[in-house]
Simulated scan of single mutants.
Amino acid sequence: MKIISLHYPLTAGELEDAEPTTIAIGHFDGVHRGHQNVILTAVESARDSGAKAAVMTFHPHPKEVLGHSAGQYVSALTPLADKLECFERLGVDIVFVVQFDLAFAAVSPSMFVHDILRPLQVGRVVVGFDFAFGAKGAGNASVMRELCEPQAIEVSVIEPFLLDGEKVSSTRIRAMLAEGKPQVAAELIGAPYAVRGTVVQGEGRGRTIGYPTANVQPSASYVVPKIGVYAIRAEVDGQLYDAVLNIGVKPTFHEHLPEPVFEAHLFDFHESLYGKTVTLRLIAFLRAERKFESIDALIAQIKADAEEARSILISN
Rank of each mutant, 00 (worst) to 15 (best):
2 K>C: 09
7 H>I: 02
11 T>R: 09
14 E>Y: 01
15 L>V: 13
17 D>C: 08
18 A>K: 12
24 A>P: 10
27 H>T: 14
27 H>I: 15
29 D>T: 05
30 G>K: 11
31 V>P: 05
31 V>D: 02
32 H>W: 02
34 G>M: 04
34 G>T: 07
35 H>T: 13
35 H>F: 03
38 V>K: 09
40 L>Y: 00
41 T>N: 11
44 E>R: 13
45 S>P: 00
49 S>Y: 06
49 S>K: 14
55 V>D: 12
55 V>Q: 13
71 G>N: 15
72 Q>M: 10
72 Q>V: 12
73 Y>D: 07
76 A>K: 10
79 P>I: 14
79 P>D: 13
82 D>H: 04
82 D>I: 06
84 L>K: 06
84 L>H: 05
87 F>R: 02
89 R>A: 12
91 G>M: 03
97 V>Q: 01
97 V>F: 03
97 V>T: 09
98 V>S: 01
98 V>E: 00
105 A>T: 03
109 P>G: 04
114 H>F: 04
115 D>R: 12
117 L>C: 03
119 P>C: 13
120 L>Y: 01
123 G>K: 15
126 V>H: 06
129 F>M: 03
130 D>K: 04
133 F>G: 01
134 G>W: 06
135 A>K: 03
138 A>H: 04
142 S>W: 02
142 S>G: 13
152 A>N: 14
153 I>H: 13
155 V>K: 11
155 V>I: 02
155 V>L: 10
173 I>M: 13
174 R>V: 02
174 R>Y: 08
175 A>N: 14
177 L>M: 12
179 E>G: 08
183 Q>V: 11
190 G>N: 00
195 V>W: 03
198 T>P: 01
201 Q>S: 03
211 Y>K: 06
215 N>Y: 10
215 N>Q: 11
218 P>F: 07
218 P>N: 06
223 V>C: 04
231 A>P: 11
232 I>N: 06
234 A>S: 14
238 G>P: 08
242 D>F: 00
244 V>L: 03
245 L>D: 08
245 L>Y: 08
246 N>D: 07
249 V>H: 15
255 E>D: 14
256 H>G: 03
256 H>Q: 11
257 L>P: 03
257 L>I: 02
272 S>M: 04
275 G>Y: 10
276 K>M: 09
277 T>G: 01
279 T>P: 00
281 R>W: 01
283 I>Y: 09
304 A>V: 10
304 A>Q: 10
305 D>V: 02
308 E>A: 11
309 A>W: 00
310 R>F: 01
312 I>L: 10
313 L>Q: 10
